[in-house]
Every structure is written in structure tokens, then in C-alpha cells.
Design a binder for these strands. Structure first.
Lengths: 201, 201
DNA sequence: GTCTATATAGCGATAGAC
DNA sequence: GTCTATCGCTATATAGAC
């Protein structure tokens, strides 16, 4: 790990700017509707220059998703140090996810048979990070089910997917559009329905 | 309401076939990835013929969404005749929605700033049906909250959106892809997490 | 690596014959 | 109303000068 040269650092900064733009546009319009021209315009460079950094639109998106996963891993690492019951860690993870989503920084997953999906499935860095996040959450889920906080009758993978799904929950933007709740209130409502259910306890 | 001629009936049948294809393709790939050429090929007619029936791709999708809403209204009407607690009606509605989704017959909503979304917002028939479905569910939600079955502290619109959101819950296809659960089991698991929450009761 | 300019392909929509 | 053929546009991606 040698010290990066000035030239390398300015290049890295540019790539960070690109990824940030992609992240936002991806969250706002989705992969299919986002165009490379838009990204270039948003970053403020020529489209051809983009392709010197990333070989394809899919690679662009994959870099954005990978970056978000790195942010998630950083958060989870901090959260793991906190003293709390496993289910509280899970709630914190879901809350973080929804905060990122409402902040417009959560690139929407490739819903179905997209070219992006096949590209991601071959992207080592992406898959590795998904695995790491899943394992971190998985240990909390197992512990929470063993302790009876999370319903032990639920398949663990169902719990995992349910938490993941908060990242693209359409209830979040809908409730915000209603205008009667602040972003914080929206998150607490969805968090409550997620962990407590719709029915009265 | 005069009896339709033979010619009218064969035309209606063709439009039904078109809508059915659109419905499936929309559920499978989403609006942006679905192409009009695909629809034409799937129906087995020329693309130009499609445009004699529907003036645009958006109109095609709107017709599919409207048809699904009609199916939903028909189901809700039957469900309303059944003797049951309000919350049971809501569960039945959510279950029906998920069944349609897993059957590949639920056109995915326009996630965000799509051209489809603006088109739907000007489509009278679509908006009317959304209103009717929302009102039907709304009365059950109000009754269930008054009776204390659904948590009265939750905003009614949050309950409504949460039930709507089962139509595009990514947990459904993910759990199915896991291969360890039948479609019926997948639905019951998601239904349980929706109404009971992740935590043990 | 950055730019301007262009290649190439696919898409929504239409023209016009039958 | 159905078809074949095509328009017009936009998108991803690249060539080539600097």
C-alpha cells in the first residue's frame, strides 16, 4: 500500500464524483431510465471520458451499488460494537437502509430480467459484499430467533429478505408524498409495521 | 346495451389477448424493458396492428393495469359478501394480491419518474378504479382500527399502502427462488410478517 | 484522459398498399 | 384492420484529434 500520487488522487476523486452522480440518478430514475448522457452532464464531463473510467453502463451501476454496500458494511461494523440485543441491531440496520433510501442515495435493485442483473451476478466485488452483509445480518437473525425476539417459526431467509426489502419499499415515498409525516416519522411507522406488524399487539 | 355483433366480439377477443400479453410481459420485465415489438410477436400480429387498437405504449400498459384493477374489484366485491372480521377481509385482499403477483400477472407499478406514471395520472379509468379499490379497503381498515384488530396508532394510509405494496414485494420472488418453500408457503410467510411482524408475539 | 464527432442499433410510431 | 416497410429519434458505445 504505497502512498498514491497526486495524479492518482485526483483521478480517484473524479471517479468518486461519477459514482455519486450515478448513485443519485439510479435512485431517482432506475437503471433503465437513467442514460449515460445524463450521468456525463451531471458530472460535468464528456460521455467518452466516462467510458475511460467504466467500460459500460452496467459497470457504472455496479460501481454505485458496490459503494453503497461498502457504506452499509461500515455502518454494520460500527453497529456491531454497540451493546444491544440482536433484534435492536436488526432494527438499526433497517432504519439505516430506509434513511439512505429517503435521502435518494439508494440505487434501486434491478427488479427483474435486466441486463444489470446478469452483470451484477458476474461482478465479484458486488457479490462478495452482498455475502458479507448477509452474513452479518444472518448472525443477528439467528441470535434473535434463538432468543425468541424474532419469531423462530419464520425462515431465516425470509427475515433477511424482509429487511433488505426496506431499501426499496414503495411505502416510504408514498407516505412522504402524503405530506402529513416527516421523514423521521415515515421511517418509524414503516419500521413499526415491519417488526410489529399491522395488527395490534 | 345491444348485443355485440360477431365482428365486435372477435375484436374484443383480440384486445383481450393483447392485454393478457402486455400483462405478462409487464410483470416479467417492467414497463421500460418491455418493447412493443415483443408484445406484437407475443400476440402474433404486426406491430402496426397493435397501434390500431391502442394509440401508444403507455395506453397499452394502462389497459393492462386497468384490467387487473377490474379483477381486484371483482374479488373485493365477492369478499365483501363473506361473513368475516374486517381484518380478515384485509388479509384476504393481501393474499389475493400476492397470488396474482406470483402468478406473473401483476404488472409492476411505475417505480418513479416514468412516462407511464404521468400517463396513468391522466387516465380516468385507471384513477377511478384505484379510488374504488382504496375506498373498499379503506372502510375495512377504518373498521379494523376501530375494533382494535389493526393497530389504531398507525396512520390509515400507511396500512393501505402496506397492503398495496404486497403486489410488488421482492420478498415473494426471492423466497420462491430459494426453492425451499412452495408458492402457498411463500405467501403465508409474507402474509404473516405483514400482519404479525417479524417479532415474536 | 479529455474532448468533438460519429458509428451502430433498437425503439416507438407511421405510411401506404391490400 | 392487417400487413410490410420505413421514418425519426435516442441510446450505448467508439474513433481519433489534442
Amino acid at each position: 500500500m504505497t502512498k498514491p500520487s497526486f495524479r492518482e488522487r485526483v483521478l480517484q476523486a473524479r471517479e468518486d464524483a461519477i459514482v455519486a452522480s450515478v448513485n443519485r440518478l439510479l435512485a431517482d430514475k432506475g437503471f433503465e431510465s437513467m442514460t449515460v448522457d445524463e450521468v456525463a452532464a451531471d458530472v460535468g464531463i464528456a460521455k467518452a471520458s466516462l467510458y475511460k473510467h467504466f467500460p459500460s453502463k452496467e459497470a457504472l451501476a455496479a460501481a454505485a451499488m458496490t459503494t453503497v454496500l461498502d457504506r452499509a458494511l461500515a455502518f454494520l461494523e460500527q453497529e456491531a460494537k454497540r451493546e444491544a440485543a440482536p433484534v435492536e441491531h436488526l432494527k438499526a440496520a433497517a432504519r439505516w437502509t430506509m434513511q439512505v433510501t429517503l435521502a435518494g442515495e439508494m440505487p434501486s435493485l434491478p427488479s427483474q430480467n435486466s441486463t444489470l442483473r446478469t452483470a451484477l451476478m458476474q461482478h465479484r466485488g458486488y457479490l462478495d459484499r452482498v455475502m458479507m452483509v448477509s452474513e452479518r445480518l444472518g448472525t443477528w437473525i439467528t441470535a434473535a430467533q434463538a432468543g425468541g425476539e424474532i419469531d423462530p417459526k419464520l425462515p431465516a431467509e425470509a427475515v433477511l429478505y424482509t429487511i433488505y426489502a426496506r431499501a426499496c419499499d414503495p411505502v416510504l415515498p408514498f407516505l412522504r408524498a402524503g405530506g402529513r409525516l416527516s421523514d423521521e416519522q415515515v421511517i418509524e411507522v414503516v419500521l413499526a409495521t415491519c417488526f410489529n406488524g399491522l395488527m395490534t399487539r
